[in-house]
């Protein structure tokens, strides 16, 4: 069984993003970038499926700038077999466009499972996986915290408001992963060296033939309102008094 794992290069989750003064976006110049944390979990799960003998090949794919090759090399070092970069340098693609590009890659690669992160920590959209499933007319299993694949179906436990839900989807299927699914491994130095020799195929966005037109125009990006400076209180007694009398919330 072949597994396709889309990964995204995003701002490192530890970095506090800064909004540009001209309100055109977030300043990403000279900022540390990494693989989206949810995508690391998706890669890890694919590798574990291969280690269990369920998956036979893992293809990592990224849609993004030339530098996204580094993100793909990370996936290869974690255990992916080969990688595809769909190079889109000038454009920040919307989730629908990414889903359409991925649909074209799925048509070429014919994976039985597409494993994605539930959301990217930059756009916070939480949409690509569901959109891809819709375009392919495949079943979807989102926010997975447990995945069992057997007999042509994926049994997936999902994190839902208030608890957990288990569903069974016939393959091929799209699965998006949640935080609790697994603990991603660190790539070891020998594996990082080996990853440099694994195949990484670069395609131009135009060659994929997907409609990637923007539907949303970003008018501005602003900083959220700052909270007024708070005070420190000395005792729990003071705290209760202030909450009652000053803030009026008790």
């Amino acid at each position: 069984m072949k597994v396709l794992v889309p990964v995204k290069r995003v701002i490192d989750y530890n970095v506090k993003p800064r909004v540009k003064a001209d309100q055109t976006g977030v300043d990403l110049a000279n900022v540390k970038m990494s693989m989206n944390p949810f995508d690391e979990i998706a890669v890890e799960e694919a590798v574990r499926l291969k280690e269990k003998g369920v998956a036979t090949e893992i293809v990592a794919v990224s849609v993004g700038p030339t530098q996204a090759q580094e993100t793909l090399r990370t996936a290869l070092a974690m255990g992916a077999d080969r990688a595809i970069l769909v190079q889109a340098n000038d454009q920040d693609l919307e989730p629908l466009a990414v889903a359409k590009v991925l649909k074209a890659i799925v048509a070429e690669e014919s994976p039985e499972v597409v494993l994605l992160g539930k959301q990217a920590i930059d756009g916070d959209n939480n949409a690509v996986g569901q959109m891809l499933a819709a375009l392919l007319e495949w079943p979807q299993a989102t926010f997975a915290s447990k995945i069992e694949i057997a007999g042509g179906a994926a049994k997936v436990t999902r994190e839902v408001d208030g608890g957990l839900q288990t569903i069974e989807a016939t393959l091929p299927a799209v699965i998006t992963v949640d935080l609790r699914l697994n603990e991603p491994r660190y790539a070891s130095l020998p594996n990082i060296m080996k990853a440099k020799k694994k195949p990484l195929d670069v395609k131009e966005l135009a060659s994929v033939g997907a409609d990637v037109a923007s539907r949303l125009k970003v008018l501005k990006v602003t900083e959220p309102a700052k909270r007024g400076g708070g005070i420190k209180v000395e005792t729990a007694q003071d705290l209760v008094m202030k909450l009652k009398n000053e803030a009026g919330v008790l």
């Binding site: 629908l96 756009g123 916070d124 959209n125 569901q130 959109m131 819709a134 926010f143 839902v160």
Partner: peptide, 23 residues
Amino acid sequence: STSLGKNIAPRIAAKLDVAQISD
């Protein structure tokens, strides 16, 4: 945008061939 809303909305958007405005 509950877990249900996040699950179903993008699927509907893609079928309508429109972008989703999330959250």
